[in-house]
Design a binder for these strands. Structure first.
Lengths: 163, 163
DNA sequence: GCAAAATTTGAAACATTATAACATTTGCAG
DNA sequence: CTGCAAATGTTATAATGTTTCAAATTTTGC
């Protein structure tokens, strides 16, 4: 899977989205998973925003597509996408974002800008290592890690109120 | 503030709760904050469980007290308690737990057992350091960290299905 | 003490997020 | 083509959280 631009900097986002979709198709094929039209469309909608999208935001987009969907449709698609590592759920926001490391095994860490709402997904092996150490120091066997940092992204530290 | 037993091991929980309340009173006094009866009662209810309690769980307890409370009452109390570092919200569970490091400046890290539901709050300076490093490596200024590890506690690794 | 101001609580309605349950359709293997 | 499993549609409902405004209480300045 190819490298991607970071959200804080302008980039050709259409290309970025279509690359994500292409990658997703490959990943699903490898996993014998069916990336159905709905699932693909939901993934696309989520990718079109670098900001996390709530399930009901996705639902609204689907509706404006003319697709008359109910909540379970969206939640099921999101479950599927999560299970196959294509999107992440941001617990502190009740929202979803496209995974920028799909296909690679990774533990996501999210930098969430409270001003512009953009989210950067990071892989920080040192952090994971320390987390594992801390957990095993307590005899705890970790399975899933939720690591979300809210704060100010570089851009919003200088020019507040950005998008 | 005194040391506390860890939730995985049996201990005199009543004493543990009343200690937490005593500490809370001291802390609020120092901060010129009003630990009103409702707030204190909510804190007590939360402390009586080592497992995180949802806002509506608290609400139900209040009702069985005879206190006819509405959701905002609980959420307001919880906001207050959070702001003064007396409880933490566990984002991945939509629930609240008493802070075992109240009064000390700390970044909480939570070990959540998916089998028994107990939660251990940890302070891991090495983790915080690595998180800070990772964030500043991206030029990001962190403000609040959500770090929640789900897995199996020592006890549930050997005897599953506990508590 | 006392009145004005600020904080806290009560109460009703509402908004948002998520799931349950069951019917229907679609894709695929034999 | 048939029958099974997976996916989707549909309706209803549960769980979580907020807005708003009114009433009561506490604090503060005098």
């Amino acid at each position: 899977m190819s490298a991607r631009a970071i959200p804080y900097r302008p980039h050709n986002h259409d290309a970025c989205v279509s690359q994500a979709l292409t990658d997703a198709r490959t990943i699903c094929q490898r996993q014998n998973a069916r990336l159905t039209p709905i699932r693909e469309r939901v993934l696309e909608l989520i990718w079109q925003s670098h900001k996390p999208l709530g399930a009901y935001d996705v639902l609204a987009e689907l509706s404006s597509d003319g697709h008359n969907a109910a909540p379970p449709t969206v939640y099921r698609a999101l479950d599927f996408l999560q299970q196959h590592g294509l999107v992440h759920r941001i617990a502190s926001l009740n929202a979803f974002i496209g995974c920028t490391h799909a296909g690679e095994s990774h533990t996501g860490m999210f930098l969430i800008c409270r001003a512009c709402g953009n989210v950067l997904e990071l892989t920080a092996p040192e952090v994971s290592t320390e987390v594992r150490k801390a957990a095993s120091g307590e005899g705890f066997r970790p399975e899933t890690t939720t690591l979300e940092i809210a704060g100010l992204c570089p851009r919003c530290q200088s020019e507040p109120g950005h998008d």
